[in-house]
Design a protein around this nucleic acid. Sequence first.
DNA 1: GGATTGATCTCGTAC
DNA 2: GTACGAGGTCAATCC
Lengths: 268, 268
Amino acid sequence: MARVRLYSSLPLEAAHHVLSEALSRRAMVVALCRCRVQYEGRGSSRLGEGERLLIVKPDGVVLVHRPRGHQPVNWQPESRSIEVRLGGGSLLLRSVRERPREVLEVYIDSVEALVVAEDVRDEAEFIEYLDEHEVRDILARHPEELEEGLRVLRVEKPVGQGYVDIFCVDREGRPVIVEVKRVTAGREAVLQLKRYVDAVKSENPGVEVRGILAAPSIAKEALILLRSLGLEYRRIDPAKLYKRYRSELRRRGGGSSARSLLSFLGGG
Amino acid sequence: MARVRLYSSLPLEAAHHVLSEALSRRAMVVALCRCRVQYEGRGSSRLGEGERLLIVKPDGVVLVHRPRGHQPVNWQPESRSIEVRLGGGSLLLRSVRERPREVLEVYIDSVEALVVAEDVRDEAEFIEYLDEHEVRDILARHPEELEEGLRVLRVEKPVGQGYVDIFCVDREGRPVIVEVKRVTAGREAVLQLKRYVDAVKSENPGVEVRGILAAPSIAKEALILLRSLGLEYRRIDPAKLYKRYRSELRRRGGGSSARSLLSFLGGG
DNA sequence: GGATTGATCTCGTAC
DNA sequence: GTACGAGGTCAATCC
């Protein structure tokens, strides 16, 4: 269990002391504080005074969250060093990262709440279902879901500078490129497929090459583009495919996890 | 100033009470807790027991952060409803979102620390410098940075289904499409430019149309592709452009903010 | 609403 | 390290 200390309305001098020690021990720090923020690196930004949530993780990640919005207003994905320093009436937390060099500076003007947690334990596995990888593997095993007579030759086949999701031949022996999307396909997906089809064509001059975009839906304009390029669209239902073939899937998490998802999907 | 309450090692019954009231008052909640997480929506995920930081913002954003990594392991960008309920030996926080329908469930097994903050005030403006928008505007005012004799006709010109960053004519009267990137350009940027050039060509049959990709650098393979497509690359330095022309920029934040950035860039 | 694009995108992975 | 593509991408903007 994590060892936790809480402080409220901490004077800056005391906060400096607590933060210094917490950071040296690689503790997790959460502070609700008035602060200003400067960032300099790939971009630049300034944020005036206000109350925010400042988070420092044991691995050097720094996050500054405003009271609204999903994303942090400022952050540091990793830090080479995190330092705290008193000066000019505020407590400066300075995080520096190299490659690319980026400096995040949080000028803390007051600390309303401070939580320091050492030894935060979290070893559990995170399991994601139904990502594109998984949908692609199901379709590679069951190409009949796309078209009868389709034979799979390669999965993740390198073509040109990219990778074809599934490389097949149809019942008439024509090469078929399948591009899989687990969300609505847009124009980029169509152009991606087109690129692969063109690459295979150029490697096999004179051969007719088909391209199939497999997605749960497709944007209207993307469909028009797809048809004008002589490509094809097949609607798929990732959740249904999952329910139908889950037993064949080899997951990192094992079969019991797969069953727990199935119960959510309402299947038998 | 925000009104803050802190709790440590809170029994689940007490945590239930505190959380219920906090959520009804739209307070900001930060909890360090043992929990399990389930997510069901556009995708699906499961996370076993471990210690995490649970954040609920006044606007209904929910974040679950593990002790490592920049990104939340689970989240809800907005919630239609957030409910807490005791049952089965744990405290369930359930966030539901519509369009798309997504359900995030955090099963809290113990609460090590809990921070509730009401009226977290943060009205400050967030100012970003040197985003693509800004670099594009500078180049639109100073096309000579790309090529002598270039004349700008349109900025953000709709072409086909997309938008051309800068639409010019060169000294010989040929249309020039400029695509601006503030980071290393990859193959996608080249293809994006190609699309616009083709669209303009198709609208002006028989007219030679040039395409210039302006970026601080370009991936090796992207450069090969660009040349094979008959397009051009111009290196730009966003920071230098900024220093050279910042005085002309009309910013939301006004001139003083611009000056504060300049001091960082080391300019006069 | 849908569609398009940028992002300090982040993150994984293959070469 | 570079390059490439996925993402529960998010968020802004234009239509």
